[in-house]
Design a protein around this nucleic acid. Structure first.
Length: 507
RNA sequence: GGUGCUUGGGCCGGGAGGUUAGGCACUGGUCUGCAAAACCAGUUAGAGCGGUUCAAUUCCGCUAGGCACCUCCA
């Protein structure tokens, strides 16, 4: 099996990935809070960890991928005051909170499906694990790292910090945290500003509430991930992913809760994806500068020149490294759109050269088979591109490096088509496998032009009829008629290309 | 204020102490009735100052911008 390196936030270094159980990987990723449409920012972890899980599977690991749905509203501002986000949305839309949850869960799923993000192995909901969360609070209380205050339970950060280190993930110490934390006007039930809620007593108007030994209330936000991670992946598991903005306090609190309730930090590799920016500024719900995925796919937003297909968005994300920020702009999206079209055109030519109609794994799960450790005997250039793709992906999920190498493969394919290079059967087979396994498998790209299904059959038939007429006009040197057909088709969004091997068209 | 990251061609963006990143855009050539696509060739870089080194865009320091986190956020 090939070595895989991942940047572990705990050490701030690239580390060799070694799973706890040989051949198996447990991975947990923080999912969305479902009170609004997913935006471009949500697409990033969706795609990033989708690619990571697919790469792990391709390398031969059996992967259990858990991504939660947060459907218990956490509080909008400080943990002590403010409105529950889901409940607030419910009031605004005059719905039950769970109707809000259902609506946006379904819309999130749909957006992820369009991006060809495979569903996780398990998608647990916070509301379905209240009992487990209450048990965890009890354990933390028993361990002495929490206190009860006016019906709520808070984590005693100072006590914890005396015995363990609070802040190991985000690299800060408690004194600094104290300095940086705003004071709470003395209204708080908390002993210290950096303490966080494990259980919160519900105010009378609070709708989402459950009984507990301490009060009718709801669990603290950080607790659900600790509890569900343990339940489905065990006391310790391999990978925990999420957005960089969750590193502190969310993931820091998770670690503290894990140590306090079960005596282990729980996670071996912390992986954090960076943010998507717009004009250099983070795109976020709280900043109100986000573009939702449905808007992006339809083009319905003042900042958008046009609609961008889900695959364009996916490719756009893959062209940057997950740990760097990625700046949104129409120009960047358009560039991605064209680059993707070039890649897909080469894929079609490749499959045609191989006599295959379409990629083997385009629309399903990638194969569970172990990736070949070495490329079969092929010409130097094909082999170099192949190696470069695998080296990049295994080097901290360097998707832009892999994409770059794939365009080397594109150049080879195009040269072969143009007749300036002759590819051996082994070369063709190696390239086809590279596209099957990596382009359509691990990177999860879909050739949207080929994905039309049954309706494409009809269009194929119509197109060949129309192009026959044009060929007849051309044969008669009736350029006006020939160009009229081409221009009319172009106006419909269909491009016609005359090649030396005949006429090609694409949408 | 604290902590961390970052600064690259017209745009988006990887890697590497010395050898082409890649995509988009642009220019010239080949092909074509014309166009498009493709192929071949090419143009535009590495914030400023100093240091280490045979060699730095890559390592170190300083200065100046920028960003993120420190409050819910992917």
């Amino acid at each position: 099996m090939r070595d895989l390196k991942l940047t572990n936030t705990l050490s701030h270094r690239k580390e060799l990935f070694v799973p706890i159980n040989e051949g198996r990987v447990g991975m947990y990723v923080c999912g969305p809070t479902v009170y609004g449409d997913a935006h471009l920012g949500h697409a990033r972890p969706g795609v990033t960890y989708d690619v990571l899980s697919k790469l792990l599977r391709h390398l031969g690991y059996k992967v259990r991928y858990v991504r939660n749905i947060t459907d218990v509203g956490h509080l909008e501002h400080d943990a002590d005051e403010g409105a529950d986000k889901i409940a607030r949305k419910a009031r605004l839309e005059q719905l039950e909170p769970m109707e809000v949850v259902q609506t946006y869960t379904l819309r999130y799923h749909e957006a992820m499906r369009q991006l060809n993000v495979a569903p996780p192995s398990i998608e647990p909901r916070a509301s379905g694990h209240i009992i487990e969360q209450i048990e965890a609070v009890k354990k933390i209380l028993d361990a002495g790292y929490a206190y009860i205050s006016n019906g709520s339970v808070y984590f005693d950060v100072q006590k914890y910090n005396a015995d363990h280190q609070y802040g190991i993930l985000s690299g800060r110490n408690l004194d600094e945290t104290l300095e940086g934390t705003r004071n709470l006007d003395g209204q708080s039930d908390k002993r210290a500003p950096y303490d966080f809620a494990l259980w919160k007593k519900a105010e009378p108007e609070h709708i989402m509430r459950w009984p507990s030994p301490w009060s009718d209330g709801f669990p603290g936000w950080h607790l659900e991930c600790s509890v569900m991670g343990e339940k489905y992946l065990g006391n310790e598991f391999d990978i925990h992913g999420g957005g960089m903005d969750l590193m502190f306090p969310h993931h820091e609190c998770e670690i503290a809760q894990n140590v306090a309730s079960r005596g282990t930090r729980g996670v071996h590799y912390w992986v954090h994806n960076n943010m998507i920016t717009i004009n250099g500024q983070k795109m976020g719900k709280s900043l109100g500068n986000f573009i939702t995925l449905p808007q992006l796919f339809s083009g319905d937003h003042p900042k958008l020149d046009q609609a961008y297909s889900p695959m364009t968005v996916r490719f756009f994300i893959l062209q940057a490294h997950y740990r760097g920020t990625l700046d949104f702009s129409n120009d960047a999206l358009k560039a991605a759109e064209k680059g993707l079209a070039k890649l897909m055109a080469a894929a079609r030519d490749l499959y045609a050269m191989c006599g295959a109609k379409e990629p083997a794994y385009a629309y399903g799960e990638i194969s569970e088979a172990v990736a070949p450790d070495e490329c079969k005997a092929t010409s130097a250039e094909v082999k170099a591109a192949w190696e470069s793709v695998y080296d990049s992906l295994c080097d901290d999920l360097n998707t832009p490096g892999a994409v770059s190498a794939l365009f080397e493969a594109v150049r080879i394919i195009n040269s072969a088509k143009a007749g300036s290079v002759k590819l051996s059967a082994e070369d063709l087979e190696a390239l086809r496998q590279l596209f099957d396994d990596i382009v359509f498998g691990v990177l999860g790209l879909v050739d949207e032009q080929n994905a039309g299904g049954a309706s494409m059959g009809v269009i194929d038939g119509l197109m060949s009829m129309v192009l026959e007429s044009r060929a007849a006009a051309k044969a008669a040197k009736d350029w006006a008629a020939s160009d009229h057909i081409r221009d009319t088709l172009a106006a419909l969004g269909i491009k016609v290309k005359d090649t030396k091997d005949g006429v090609e068209w694409s949408l």
